[in-house]
Amino acid sequence: MTYSPLHLCLLFSSALFCIGLIGALARSNTILVLLGVELMLNAANLNFIAFWRYGPPTAPGTGVIFVIFAIAVAAAEAAVGLALVIAVYRHHRSIRLQDANQLKG
């Protein structure tokens, strides 16, 4: 069986997703966890573009527009997430996830 480019793109994005997942699970530094999540989000975006390029024809530009919105939301997520990291650091003097296990500051 030969694989179409769409297969390759999807394999690429699944591998990227899993790298992000492993990173988010294995590391305990909050910033690295956030970066892992960001990578998973990017893998999802990759799929949208792959299907837009090779998938069955749909309304023009649906995939592209979805990715544009996803990028905008990801930027907001990164800004708020890293602000939270800084706030956590100020409370606990540490950004290890294990140290931030209290609800009361």
């Binding site: 793109c9 990227l16 990759l46 390029r53 592209v64 990715v67 990028i71």
Partner: peptide
């Protein structure tokens, strides 16, 4: 990833 988008023809993205 941006290079991939460029390769796929989604210049703006």
């Amino acid at each position: 990833i941006a290079a991939f988008y460029l390769w796929a023809g989604a210049e703006f993205v």
